[in-house]
């Protein structure tokens, strides 16, 4: 039945509307890294948010896992032209983590174990748009995919979803992170193909 419909409508040649321009669907989960994979024990893991006053809000793994957990089903888009549809994650919403954080600053630098950084607008992290994810596809997040926890900002290209995230530092101005200093776009909206400078 379905193959007849597809044949007549030519749907197999239609572009999936969930794919941003210039993207190709993949079913595996490619690994892209800028360096060695840090091995971080959850006993030593810590995540913090630092504001302009020097105030630090921090969580160890136990405190982090006691926060309300979101189930996230989302598409992800890598700047290297692959997209993966309907991925499932579990994580803590940035709305939850920012609940008691007072800041006048509009930008954030995400810092990772291993030294990676990426810049984001606070608006891109709040209102149900971003998480610190610790589970992918029902399993603890593999170190090569950013475990024990990574940033998940699925409406931006995936380099913004910093693996091995350890903290967010508020910034008054938008300053480039690691890849953004070296050719990639400050914002990275896949629907606008914000790939490079």
């Amino acid at each position: 039945m379905s193959f007849i419909t597809r044949g007549f409508s030519g749907r197999s040649h239609e572009r999936d509307e969930r794919l941003p321009p210039g993207q190709t669907l993949v079913h595996d989960f490619p690994v892209l890294s800028a360096g060695p994979t840090p091995e971080i024990d959850t006993a030593e893991w810590e995540f913090s948010i630092t504001t302009e006053t020097g105030g630090v809000h921090s969580w160890n793994w136990q405190q982090f896992m006691a926060l309300p957990i979101d189930e996230v089903d989302t598409d992800i888009h890598c700047v290297t032209h692959w997209s993966k549809l309907g991925t499932s994650w579990r994580g803590i919403s940035l709305d939850t983590l920012f609940e008691n954080v007072e800041t006048q600053y509009d930008y954030v630098m995400a810092h990772s174990y291993g030294g990676y950084t990426t810049n984001l607008a606070l608006d891109d992290l709040l209102d149900g748009k971003a998480w610190i994810a610790f589970e992918f596809d029902g399993e603890p997040l593999d170190p090569e995919h950013g475990g024990p926890a990574r940033l998940l900002v699925p409406h931006l290209y995936f380099w913004k979803s910093a693996k091995w995230v350890r903290g967010l530092v508020m910034m008054g101005e938008d300053e480039p992170g690691f890849w953004e200093q070296n050719g990639y776009h400050l914002h990275g909206d896949p629907w606008k193909e914000e790939r490079y400078w």
Partner: peptide
């Protein structure tokens, strides 16, 4: 990686240099 190449110090692993390539440009 397809995103770019990263050169790290053989002694301390710090990033020395990066190479990013698009279809029509390189950084």
């Amino acid at each position: 990686s397809p995103a770019g190449s990263v050169l790290r110090c053989a002694s301390c692993e710090q990033v020395l240099a990066t190479l990013v390539e698009s279809d029509d440009r390189a950084w």
